[in-house]
Design a protein around this nucleic acid. Sequence first.
DNA 1: CTGGCTTTATACTGAACGGTACAGAAAGCT
DNA 2: AGCTTTCTGTACCGTTCAGTATAAAGCCAG
Lengths: 203, 203
Amino acid sequence: MNKLGSICARGRPREFCTEQALARALEVFWSKGYEGTSLNDLTEAMGINRPSMYAAFGNKEELFKKALDLYEREKMAYIGKALEQPTARLVAETMLRGAVDNATGGEQPHGCLRVINSVACGAEAESIRGEINARGKLAKAVLIERFERAKLEGDLPSHVDPHGMTAVLVAMLQGISIQASQGASREDLERLAQTGLSMWPSA
Amino acid sequence: MNKLGSICARGRPREFCTEQALARALEVFWSKGYEGTSLNDLTEAMGINRPSMYAAFGNKEELFKKALDLYEREKMAYIGKALEQPTARLVAETMLRGAVDNATGGEQPHGCLRVINSVACGAEAESIRGEINARGKLAKAVLIERFERAKLEGDLPSHVDPHGMTAVLVAMLQGISIQASQGASREDLERLAQTGLSMWPSA
DNA sequence: CTGGCTTTATACTGAACGGTACAGAAAGCT
DNA sequence: AGCTTTCTGTACCGTTCAGTATAAAGCCAG
């Protein structure tokens, strides 16, 4: 034990930065999806070899979840900002613009990590899909609550259905994600967002 | 050669119905996606063994494309009906309702075969994704043309952007598909469609 | 019946997958 | 120094994948 009680790094020190490696892993998962990413893809992008990855992150699934946490912290921050907006319309506008920015931020447009993996393929990814759907359900509930408040505050007409409104907005966000991963240009997506916004009910 | 020139089935006759087998394969692809479906899944569902499948359909990829043809012929017929509707609003309504019906037709709701596989994972499915995106692009072009006509005919306001309108409608259809595959109920999806329709611009 | 043709069924191939055993290398502790 | 602890690199494990070689089974024409 160290006399000073300091964190003593015994044994050979790690030769890579875990945060940087996680960021690299996120990039790969983001462009290829969970199942489409192999351990070779990951270790190559992370610049480490397999046992190091297992020691640092557990396994492929845990690595993905940690990458997903990072993704939500960094790339989905606009959702938090959106919910703080004063009107329902501004909530929607902030989310739509955030989704477009997020989808077209990289070299070539690619869909939201969540949306991509919520429809993943094999039985291998069942747990991943469950995790993502749970997080999505939570976000939906928050949006519904926000739109119910908007009705009370009068910036959403009384005839609208908050559940339906949320489902439509989420559908637009999912559409942005899918069309981006299908190769839509930034202009295409901006027209989608703009038109969707022009259809938003006014109080 | 047969004297009568009739189709003479030489050799051992096939013991299964190809159309029925293809329909079974479609069911599996529809619920598991292209990459999520293994040859074991397929042959088990089709009730035949591997070499029979290869002899009858070529390989997994060709089998999928034939299943996709069948899917579009049977399950996406509503798109043709939609385009024939007299107004843009009715086009949208027919498509939205058709998508909801299609997604909730089976035992449990599952997304559109196209949407599911347009975001498929690995490099294995690159060709599949290309095929699907090409077909989707075509459908989008037809919709844009339809909405341009609607503007000329005056049942869509002059300020709307047909490209944007199409992208929004397609996003709603994709959203229906994704939310269905995430386990949304029929009621959820109907509220999505209803609310989306209530936002449709009136002439 | 015999020979030719096609579908069956079994069992296999090579490659890729996620995950790991093991030996060597690099640091701190006593 | 010598020991312990942790990380690195290689080489491997068992499993699953799409696809196929091979031979038996079934049907026709002659």
